[in-house]
């Protein structure tokens, strides 16, 4: 039984992790790297408008990148992307293990998960782990100053746990009381509110941050649906 739990979770985790990392490299990582250029000061918001560099003859100088530096950066980037690939597999295996534990718990109450219902479970996972916390703590582009990281982590974890519990109450609860308790759990972390700085101090242009947020959520939604579907498929197949 434990083997069934583990194998469904790991297969699904690797499949979803692979999809996630490929989509990230395509859609998210370029924005992340650009955000870092603003973080380190290599680029400045409103460049060319407010910050103008002129040479001795009064011509505007475009910022030049040194070739050697770029080559070295590319080499480091390969190692960096390799660790990102590996960490995605770890994270999605983790998500997969928790999701499949949920399948097993639902089975205790007579709910069977298949490929199709697994995708819905995945979507619920996306809502609980990504979308609901993002309503308080937006996905951060590097170079976004934010409140104390430990406080944010506590709020994030609390929100994920209450949202998972809230969804379970609303979906599986029998009767109005469960729905009311579930709704209260879903709302509670947002009523309390996420920790934020009392001022705005981001380095990157708002357009870049906005695109980063929407793409991050988009990519994670696809990956979660894949995770749920694949986990559901293996779970169902091993049950028959």
């Amino acid at each position: 039984m434990t083997l069934k739990l583990l194998s469904s979770a790991v297969f699904a985790g690797f499949a979803a992790g692979l999809i996630a990392v490929l989509l990230q490299f395509w859609l998210v990582t370029p924005l992340l790297l650009e955000g870092e250029e603003y973080e380190t000061g290599a680029k400045t918001h409103f460049e060319g408008v407010l910050v103008v560099v002129e040479d001795s003859e009064g011509n505007i100088v475009a910022p030049e990148e040194e070739a050697a530096e770029v080559a070295e950066e590319e080499e480091n980037l390969m190692a960096r992307h390799a660790t990102t690939f590996f960490m995605n597999m770890v994270v999605f295996s983790g998500f997969g293990l928790i999701l499949v534990a949920g399948f097993a718990l639902a089975a205790q109450f007579g709910h069977q998960v298949t490929f199709h219902s697994g995708m819905v479970w995945g979507l619920a996972g996306f809502i609980a782990v990504q979308l609901a916390p993002a309503a308080g703590l937006y996905p951060e582009l590097p170079g976004t100053p934010a409140d104390n990281v430990v406080l944010r982590q506590y709020w994030w974890m609390t929100t994920v746990v209450t949202t998972i519990t809230g969804i379970a109450f609303v979906v599986f609860g029998r009767g109005l009381v469960y729905i009311v308790i579930g709704a209260a759990l879903l709302a509670a972390p947002h009523i309390i509110g996420a920790p934020h700085l009392p001022y705005y101090a981001g380095f990157a242009p708002p357009e870049l941050s906005a695109l980063f947020v929407s793409r991050t959520l988009f990519v994670m939604m696809i990956a979660w649906v894949v995770l749920g579907g694949v986990a559901g498929y293996f779970w169902h197949r091993q049950t028959d």
């Binding site: 739990l5 534990a101 089975a107």
Partner: peptide, 21 residues
Amino acid sequence: AKADTGLLPIVSTALAGVFLI
């Protein structure tokens, strides 16, 4: 058999996931 997973494997699987995350 399906309904008889028992809580221990379920909890330990979830904890393994939490550990990784």
